[in-house]
Each structure stands twice: as C-alpha cells, then as structure tokens.
Amino acid sequence: MDFDFTDDQESLRDAVRRWVDKDYGFEHRREVVRAGGQSSEDWQALAGLGLMGLAVPEAHGGMGFGAVDAMVVMEELGRGLVLEPYAQVALMACSALQAAPEALQAAWLPKIAGGEALVVLAHQERAARYRLNHVTTTAVSGATGWMISGAKSVVPCGDRADAFIAPARVSGAADDANGIALFLVERSAAGVTTQGYLTQDGSRAAEVKFANSPAQLISLDGHALLELAVDVGIAAMCAEAVGAMDRLVAITAEYLNTRKQFGVVISSFQALRHRMADVKMQLELARSMSYYATLKLGEAPAQRRRALSQAKYQLGQSTRYVGQQCTQLHGGIGVTDEYISSHYFKRLTAMELQFGDSLHHLGEVSARMQNTAGVFA
C-alpha cells in the first residue's frame, strides 16, 4: 500500500508548519493561555491559510478536501501544540452540518469556511461516561419550533462559540440510541448560559446549559450522526497526538545530546538509548494507527466505529508511554512550567481522556470483535 503523500498534501503540510514555526512559538502559546486559552487573532490566521474551509464543500465556499488532508493539518497543529479548537469546528462540526437541511448548511458552512463562526459539538453529559447513547438533554417541538433543555460539559471554547451542535432526546429512555436528534443552538439564544474555564492542558472549555432554548433541527437520526462526528474527532486527535509526540521525542533527543554527566553527554548511556528506542517504537505504532483511523472514516458505521476504537486505544497507550518516558528522561526540568516538554506531556495526558479513555475503547473493541479473534478487518 502506498502511504506517500501527494505534492499538494506536502505543500499543505509545509504551509501549516511555517505558520506554526513563525507565529506560534512557545512564548506566544503561553501568552494565549494567560489570555484565556483561545486567540481570535490565531483563529483568523488559520482562516487566512484556508484551513477553516478544508472540509467544507465547495458549494458552500470551502475546498472540499478529504480526511488525509485533515490528518496532515492536524499533525502539524499537534507538533505546535496549537490551542485553537480547529478539529472541533472545521472537521467535527462540518461533518455534522453536512447532514442538515440545505438552508441551515447555507447559513453556517460559509461562515465556518471564512473563519466568521465558531461552531462546536456540545455532547458530553456528566453521567454519560463516554457513552454517546446516554442523553438526558431533551427537545420538544412546539408552535414556534424546537426548544431544548439540558446541560453539556467540557464544551470546547463553549463560552466563546457562536453556536453549538447538541444531541437531545426527543423520545425513549436516557440510554436508548433511538430517539436522539441533533440540533444547532446559537449561544445568543434565550435560555443559554455558559461558564468558561481553562483545562489542564491550557485550552478553553465551558459548561453549557439550555433552558427552553430555541434550536434548529439538523437531523432526527442524531445518534448515527453523533457517532460519525466523534469518529472524525478521534481520527483528528490521533493525528494531532502523532505530531505532538514526534516533536516531544525530538526535544528529548536534543536534550539527551546536550545534557552531560560524568563529562559525557547522557545520550551515550546505553540504558537511555534503549529507552529512546522504545519511545520511538510507540510513536511509530501510534502513527500507523493514525493512518488506519483516517483511512477507515469512509467505511460502514460498524467497521468504522471498531477501527476508531482500536486507534484510540493505541493512542492512549502511546501517549502515556511517550509522555511519561520523555518526562523522566528530562529529569526535574521535565515537569516545570517554564520548559516546553511539560506542556506536551499535559496535552498528551489530556488526549488519553478525550472521546473516551483507553479502558472505554478497549471495551468497545472487545464488544465488536465477534469471531475475528482480534484480527483487524
């Protein structure tokens, strides 16, 4: 199988990498964290590169690129530890909105492509434990349209978003996969309240509450659409993690080639060289599973869901191992806020918990193995 990237994809990678290297250095990132974890200037810079319209269909002002192009972008954003909720808006929200009525697509997709609107998925609920079928937020249809009530947690940039894509129950029990619809709710709508905060990795999130808030219906088949959006997010995160781990390994190798003990650089110590070899192995395992996740996004839902859980499980194993080993190889400086590697470690640790932790996805893989004995389809 040919895993070479096209010339256009390499040009895309170079453009994003140049922006990260020039305009998104470590000190700039720390300033963004101090300012709240999100920067409108950086958001417009991403839009200026054309990245916001990457997955938006050409009919709505985007470029209509595919999953591999998105993977290339996410690797470079991960390498730079970029805080902007790019994947949540440009990839996840766009995938959900493409199933919306044409009028709703025309109202929001061009704004996303132009960087004028920040639309994020608001799906997590406190008791869900990563289960996408657990939805207690409710929606009812009345004379004036749909009204939604409920609460969502850890919504990316929720207090700064222009609109939310939120699953809500229109029928059935709290854990029933049927009866879930997907809605778009504007943050300025009546009854919407948000409480923003910084997360451990420096990004921004919020608690969002709806109280009889006006909502626009995206699809009554909300569960299947939500699964697709989350799978797109998992694939994007796998690529982001590969970029982050790749950069962390390079930083660690540079440190080992500079730090001296007993008059020699510590990279000459055989035990440390063996540990770096193990770290590199975990990085390459994650890279191969990132490719696997991206290439499986176009499969049937059952095969896609299992593939993405397999990838997310390997991602969790690799991020934990690479983050911990690289931090230990640095010694005490590796856990200081002033040193860049600690921020990679925090981001990798947070990734392991997003969209389901390793144990959750191990259970998902196990439930979907059937008679294949773990052999990938």
Rank of each mutant, 00 (worst) to 15 (best):
F3A: 10
T6S: 15
D7P: 07
D8I: 06
D8Y: 08
R18L: 13
W19I: 05
G25V: 05
H28D: 09
R30G: 12
E41A: 15
W43L: 12
L46A: 04
L49R: 05
G53K: 02
G53Y: 01
L54S: 08
A55Y: 10
A59P: 02
A59Y: 06
H60E: 12
G61H: 02
V73Q: 03
M74N: 09
G80H: 10
V82G: 02
M92H: 01
L97V: 10
P101V: 07
L104I: 06
Q105R: 14
W108L: 09
W108M: 02
L109W: 07
K111H: 10
L118S: 12
V120R: 03
Y130S: 14
H134N: 13
H134K: 14
S149W: 09
G150T: 08
G150M: 09
P156C: 06
G158E: 07
G158K: 04
R160G: 09
A163F: 04
V170S: 04
V170N: 03
G172I: 08
N178Y: 01
F183Q: 02
R187E: 07
V192D: 02
T193Q: 09
Q200R: 11
D201V: 03
G202V: 03
R204W: 00
R204H: 09
S213Y: 06
P214N: 05
P214W: 02
D221Y: 00
A224R: 04
L226T: 02
L228T: 09
V230K: 00
V232E: 01
V232Q: 03
M237I: 07
C238M: 06
G243V: 05
A244M: 05
L248K: 07
T252F: 01
N257D: 15
N257A: 14
R259N: 08
R259T: 08
K260Y: 03
F269V: 14
A271G: 13
L272M: 13
L272C: 06
R273F: 03
H274L: 15
M276D: 11
M276H: 12
D278E: 15
L283Y: 07
E284C: 11
L285Y: 13
Y292C: 01
A293R: 01
L295K: 08
L297G: 02
A300M: 14
Q310G: 13
A311Q: 01
K312N: 03
Q317W: 13
S318F: 00
V322F: 07
Q325R: 13
D337A: 15
S341K: 04
S341I: 13
S342A: 13
S342N: 12
H343R: 12
Y344D: 00
Y344C: 00
K346I: 00
Q354A: 08
D357I: 00
L359T: 15
H361V: 02
L362T: 05
E364G: 03
V365I: 15
S366H: 08
S366T: 11
A367M: 06
M369Y: 12
T372L: 12
